[in-house]
């Protein structure tokens, strides 16, 4: 086995596998502890986003007609495409974990690479959405001044009172979500390299499981952002 130096010092027997840290009784206890820790972390992530979801709700209750009108400026086709892309990436993660559990390294690596590629597509689409808006003066902060016409849309008509509130929320929520996608890409790059090296087996795949949980949460946040910002 290809072990890291700190693991080499530990006896690699059936009773005490190399991945098992000395303060845990069994692999299962270690796995369960790691997983519960991840769920606790995910709750802090949910609470981080819930602050923004509450801000969205409060401002929407105050100016529903503005939020309804501004959503029309976000392209539901691009948002919908990104929703499908993220859902597909969640599927490939779940599939990857399935293959890790049945010791299919090729299946695991393939699905991790696919997940990484889906994350790339998501951010590329997001880049085009952002740049089209910034070009027409829809920016975060004082520079907000919609202008110009493209694809039959007169941006100047969107320069109404409280429009800035909607787009500030849009940029902050999708921006922080996009940052999470970027972090996820880093995680999957790391996990893929480890999977290629053969670090994961059905007996030990905790990092894959935890990165998968993180990625599904990023997907869930988008499942809510898409209808709230693009559709209603």
């Amino acid at each position: 086995m290809d072990l890291k130096p700190d693991e080499r010092t530990m006896a690699s027997t059936a009773e005490h596998p190399a991945h098992l840290q000395h303060h845990f009784v069994s692999s299962d206890q270690q796995f369960d502890a790691a997983k519960m820790g991840m769920w606790l972390f995910l709750i802090t992530e949910i609470l981080l986003f819930s602050g923004m979801f509450v801000a969205y709700t409060v401002y929407r209750v105050w100016h529903p007609e503005v939020f309804d009108g501004m959503a029309a400026l976000l392209d539901w086709r691009l948002g919908g495409l990104n929703t499908l892309v993220l859902l597909a990436s969640s599927f490939t993660v779940a599939l990857g974990i399935h293959y890790a559990q049945v010791d299919n390294r090729k299946g695991l690596v393939t699905n991790l690479v696919l997940t990484f590629l889906f994350a790339c597509i998501f951010l590329v689409v997001k880049y085009f959405e952002y740049s089209a808006k910034i070009e027409h003066g829809i920016v975060l902060g004082d520079g907000f001044a919609p202008h110009g016409v493209s694809h039959g849309v007169d941006y100047a008509t969107y320069d109404v009172m409280f429009a800035q509130q909607f787009f500030s929320i849009y940029y902050v929520m999708t921006g922080i979500h996009g940052f999470h996608v970027l972090v996820g890409m880093g995680l999957f790059a790391w996990i893929t390299v480890r999977a290629v090296k053969g670090h994961f087996t059905s007996a030990y795949y905790t990092p894959v499981e935890l990165c998968g949980l993180y990625w599904h949460l990023v997907d869930i946040i988008w499942i809510f952002l898409f209808p709230l910002l693009y559709l209603i």
């Binding site: 997983k35 519960m36 769920w39 606790l40 995910l42 709750i43 949910i46 609470l47 819930s50 602050g51 979801f53 509450v54 709700t57 409060v58 209750v61």
Partner: peptide, 20 residues
């Protein structure tokens, strides 16, 4: 883990409703 998630989700609802 379901309890952890459920309690977290409950507090999100409390946060939202009490703000409103």
């Amino acid at each position: 883990n379901a309890v952890v998630f459920g309690v977290g989700a409950l507090f999100v609802v409390v946060f939202l409703v009490f703000t409103l």
